[in-house]
Structure formats: C-alpha cells, structure tokens
Amino acid sequence: MSKTQRIALVIGLVLYAVLPQFLKSYGVYLMTLLCVYLMAAFGLNLIVGYAGQMSIGQAAFYGIGAYVAAILMTKMGISFWFALPIAAIACFVVGLALGFPALRVQHHYLAFATLGFNVLVFLVMRNEEDLTGGTFGISNIPRPSIFGYSLDGALPFFYFAFVSVILLAAVLWWLLRSPWGRAFAALRDNPIRAESTGVNITAYTLLAFAIGAACAGIGGVYLAALVNFIEPGQFSLSVSLLMLLAVIVGGSGRFFGPVLGSIVVVLLPEWLRFLQDWYLAIFGFAVIVLMVYLPGGLLSLGDRFKSGGGTR
C-alpha cells in the first residue's frame, strides 16, 4: 500500500463513519447492510480472487450463518456472542465437508458443487418448517448488547457492524500477508512451480474455501440481527450469483475489490432509483463489457495507467 492509498483509505473510512449521522433510518440501514454484505463478499474474494476457485454458493453459507444464529438466539435464548462463533465454525466445517470431495476430483467442479449445494440449502430452509420456520422465516431476532450497552438502535448497530467488518478485513489482510497467504500468491502466479516447491494446492484451496465460507457465516449472523427477520428468499441462488458478480466487477484478487463491487450492488441501485429495473439490466450488460475489456474488474483500471500491482 502506498502512502496516498493509505490516506485515501483513512479518509474513506472517516467519511463512511460520519455520513450516517446525517441520514434517516433507511439510509443508515443501507449503509449497515453494505457492511454486512461486505463480510460475505470479502470471504468470497478469498475463494475467487486468491484461491482461483469459482463459488456459486456463497449465499448458502450466508444463510447457514444467519439461520444457525437465529435459531440459537430465538429458540434457545443463546446470546449473540456465543451464536457468532458457533455459526462461523459451522460454516467452516460445512465448507470443508463440501469442498473436500469436490476439490479432490477436479478443480472447476467446486463451482458446480456450490451451485447445487446452494439450491439444496434453500430447499431445506424452506421445507424444514419445525427448525427454520419454512417460508414464514424467523422473526424477532434480537440485536446484541455490548458491555451492557444495547445495540438496538439503527446508529449503534451501524457502528457495531462497521467496526466488525473492519476487524474482519484486518484479519484477512494479516492472513494474506502471513507465510500461508504468500503461498497463494505463489500459487496464483505459477501453480506448477508452487506445487514443485511443496505447496499442497488442494489443501490450501480447501482452507481458503472454508475460511471464505466462515466469513459468509459471520456476515449472515449480522444480517439476521440487522433485519431482525430471515426467510429463505434472502439466501437463494440468485443472491450468490449477484455476490459473485459484485466481487468480480470490483476486481477479484484485489483486497478492496469487494468493497467497490458491493457498493455497485447494494448502494448504487438506491442512488439510481429512478432507473428502477433498468438498473440491473444495465448492470448485467455492463458485466459483459467489463469482461471483454477489463476482465480484472474496475479496480484494475488503475493498472492500465501505471505499472505495478497497486493494492494487490
């Protein structure tokens, strides 16, 4: 990260922290939603951008996290602070269980497996009414309190989610700069050489997939608390597809790619509300154009003008 980039990052964060003070509850809701969405999108970027795998099932993990937390909190009265790690671990384990057989066979089959998995998870959420509330969903999901301070209000919860997503991003940043994370760079740049130097591609990819899944699970827990209500439609296949496009449009494999992509998917439609359904139509075709002319995503635009990896 260059100095200018660091300054830009700090300014961006400060602006984002201050803006909600001037917004009404719907605006705050959207900004919180972006933070929550980002948690899952950061995880997806790890899978897509760094491990080079297509996952078309991130919403399934988003949903598993949300449902595990909602069920624990509403039906068993377990606190948010316990539900959060349980949901994250559950997603991590499910990620391993799904990724292991899928990656063992053939690498691009993980995409297909995640797609099928997403549909299956959706069916279970919708049909196992005793557990998941079926199409009625689960309502009255509580928001947590921290050191006795309730995060019920729109602004307190926004700051909670904002700080959380920064922490999550920091952990991922550190992870990618650890020796483990560096192996990825090696993998991505030259898989054959990396393998010859003893990097176990499958193990690394699998771990990245499971960590990405856990991030989505964490996002899901926050989503449940934000909306206070979840139902299967929030975690359908189309949600996964949109999230995948968001990450790629922003610039997969770039740390801040998901941020830009999520803004395009979550905030921009609100800004451009007068476009209504045309917004997604334009978005869809823009993705095609982007793939043809700028397959590295919007953030790779900078590289067109200057050499060097930038934020990579």
């Binding site: 509850s25 605006g27 909306v227 209500f229 439609g233």
Partner: peptide, 19 residues
C-alpha cells in the same frame, strides 16, 4: 415502492416510508 415480493425489502422500505 417496489418490495420485489420480498419481506426484508418490504421491511426496509417501510422504514423509508416512515422516514
């Protein structure tokens, strides 16, 4: 406002209506 037949969108838009 279009709820897209989705409860969570309806809920968010209800906040907006209140706003």
């Amino acid at each position: 406002m279009d709820t897209q037949s989705a409860p969570q969108t309806a809920k968010a838009l209800a906040q907006k209506a209140v706003d």
